[in-house]
């Protein structure tokens, strides 16, 4: 059993790599397997212990009514049924969808525009802008969020001061305490912390576009816009898809912003799935229910990731 399983891949690679195929004995193969596992061991211990087991446990517990200091009670699909009848869950789902639908296209379009504006600049200028747009990502969600909370403050916030000064509003608006405005504030902050990575990716993708094709198009009298859509856009499509997927996943997982700014309020108008899971599991200790929602979120995100891997695989 063992040898046939090992030999198969060897045979497939046979023609191209002569030296490694000929003369590998069974004993050598066994030795190689043992040494490979010794190299893998440190990683495998933490990976299995603190990632795989919890993942399996998450699925398992989602079929139980589980809380603190009491034996779990098996409820089958009870948690899942409860989820579909839970109005707040649906509201959280809609809010998450709104964030994704607004944030993803804006972030992608803006980062593409910024990247196309800066990628041709001289080295220092390009790194300067890349750096500026990456700063909010590196600074950390908590530091960025607390300063925005102050800026949006009802009485002492600079947003109200500027908005009144420029005549946009007449009286102070309680941006984060208002059901209509709160979620838009969150999307705005999410935007500032999300465009850094796509810009870096686009800058490197645009830099890799075949320059001779662009020049040929320009010689043939194509306008800037034509050159962009006909020549460059097709070549950066894989990067665009990748950016769409990671931005979608990041927006799905938006949590710290909400926990720190609004705690899901007012009146659940800023609840997202991630925040609602946190609220149910760690505030109300409904572990089973939280896990069931986690499973659903994981499935949705896994579908997006699968899409990304498929796209990435096609390019080779």
């Amino acid at each position: 059993m063992t040898t046939s399983a090992i030999k198969k891949p060897l045979k497939q690679k046979g023609p191209s790599k002569r030296s490694t195929v000929l003369g590998i004995s069974q004993a050598e193969a066994r030795r190689e397997t043992i040494s490979a596992y010794l190299f893998l061991l440190p990683f495998l211990v933490v990976f299995v212990g603190f990632v795989l087991i919890p993942m399996v446990m998450c699925l398992w517990t989602s079929f139980f009514d589980s809380t603190m200091a009491r034996e779990d009670i098996f409820v089958g699909f009870g948690n899942y049924i409860k989820m579909f009848q839970d109005e707040i869950f649906w509201k959280a789902l809609m809010n998450t969808a709104l964030i994704v639908v607004v944030a993803v296209p804006t972030v992608t379009a803006f980062s593409l525009w910024v990247a196309s504006a800066i990628y041709k600049m001289k080295g220092a200028a390009c790194s300067f802008f890349r750096c500026v747009f990456y700063l909010p990502v590196v600074t950390g969600t908590v530091a960025v969020t607390v300063v925005w909370k102050w800026m949006f403050n009802n009485y002492y916030g600079i947003v109200n001061y500027i908005a009144k000064g420029t005549g946009l509003i007449e009286n102070n608006v309680n941006w984060l305490g208002n059901e209509k405005t709160a979620i838009w504030c969150i999307i705005l902050i999410l935007f500032t912390t999300s465009i850094g990575q796509p810009i870096v990716l686009y800058v490197s993708a645009l830099g890799n576009v075949d320059a001779s094709l662009v020049e040929a198009a320009e010689v043939d009298g194509a306008t800037r816009l034509q050159t962009f859509w006909k020549i460059m856009w097709p070549q950066i499509t894989p990067t665009t898809l990748y950016i769409l997927v990671i931005t979608t996943i990041n927006s799905f997982q938006c949590f710290a912003l909400i926990q720190l700014l609004t705690s899901g309020g007012p009146n659940h108008s800023t609840d997202t799935i991630m925040y609602y899971i946190y609220y149910k599991a760690f505030k109300l200790y409904e572990y089973g229910y939280g896990n069931a929602m986690g499973v659903i979120l994981a499935i949705v995100i896994a579908l997006f990731s699968a899409l990304q891997f498929k796209v990435a695989g096609k390019r080779d």
């Binding site: 063992t2 399983a5 090992i6 891949p9 060897l10 193969a29 190689e32 397997t33 040494s35 490979a36 596992y37 190299f39 893998l40 495998l44 990976f47 603190f50 990632v51 795989l52 087991i53 919890p54 993942m55 446990m57 998450c58 517990t61 996943i249 799905f252 997982q253 949590f255 991630m274 899971i277 599991a281 760690f282 572990y287 939280g290 896990n291 986690g294 499973v295 979120l297 994981a298 995100i301 896994a302 990731s305 699968a306 891997f309």
Partner: peptide, 30 residues
């Protein structure tokens, strides 16, 4: 390296990477 179980381990890694880290927090706490 080529060794027995490599494909299995690698697919476990890919699958785990596709999932959001936050969903394991509840079991991880326990």
């Amino acid at each position: 390296k080529r060794f027995y179980g490599k494909a299995f381990i690698f697919s476990a890694i890919i699958c785990a990477m596709a999932l959001p880290k936050q969903v394991i927090l509840i079991p991880l706490l326990k």
